[in-house]
């Protein structure tokens, strides 16, 4: 653009930071648990109809669900990971994510109302944290960056907090 300001023009993919690779494992475990339960449920359904008049031969339904489960739990997290990128710039947070829908988000730091760093049980095992950025926007009032190193998440939080606190305008973000 014609102005001297640095925003976004530098948004090339190589600059983007990836999530921690271990996030793929966390996603896989969470989704795998769900897929396994579903597959078992379908398997028991199949079993119950073993001697009934079913349109499909025994095991087909289970196999379909199992294949979908593998896609869902093993392949999809890899795609999610590959499509996730973010960069904490001097004045904004820039995020790209989404497997089917590619979504790019620009959150100006001065619009941030508050920040959370959270961690669930599984994430704690991998010392991962997620940064939750709350804005006053209405469509999605919080933007989440998962799969950060907990220390890194806290560092980003403190840095952004510093930026907000130093705002010379000190205006109400709304």
């Amino acid at each position: 653009m014609e102005t001297a300001s640095p925003p976004l023009e530098t948004a090339s993919a190589d600059e983007l930071q990836s999530l921690e690779p271990s996030m793929q494992t966390v996603w896989s475990i969470k989704r795998g648990a769900f897929a396994t339960i579903t597959a078992f449920a379908v398997f028991f359904y199949d079993l119950a109809h073993l001697f009934g008049t079913s349109a499909l031969p025994f095991g087909v339904l289970t196999a379909i669900v199992a294949v979908l489960g593998v896609l869902y739990a093993l392949i999809w997290p890899r795609l999610m990971y590959r499509n996730w990128g973010f960069s904490i710039r001097s004045e904004e947070i820039y995020i790209e994510h989404g497997v089917l829908n590619h979504i790019r988000t620009v959150v100006p730091l001065r619009r941030i109302q508050h920040l959370d760093v959270s961690q669930d049980l599984l994430e704690r095992e991998f010392s991962l944290g997620r940064l939750i950025v709350h804005t006053a926007g209405s469509r999605s009032s919080d933007v989440v960056i998962p799969g950060l190193n907990l220390k890194e998440a806290e560092r980003i939080r403190d840095r952004v907090k510093q930026f907000i606190l130093e705002d010379p305008l000190m205006e109400d973000p709304v």
Partner: peptide, 22 residues
């Protein structure tokens, strides 16, 4: 407040995007 562009899998086939300012 927050600036978005989105491109669904169908939009990408046609080289389209949507944008939205929250």
């Amino acid at each position: 407040h927050v600036f978005y562009t989105t491109a669904s899998i169908f939009q990408r086939r046609l080289g389209l995007k949507s944008f939205f300012v929250d």
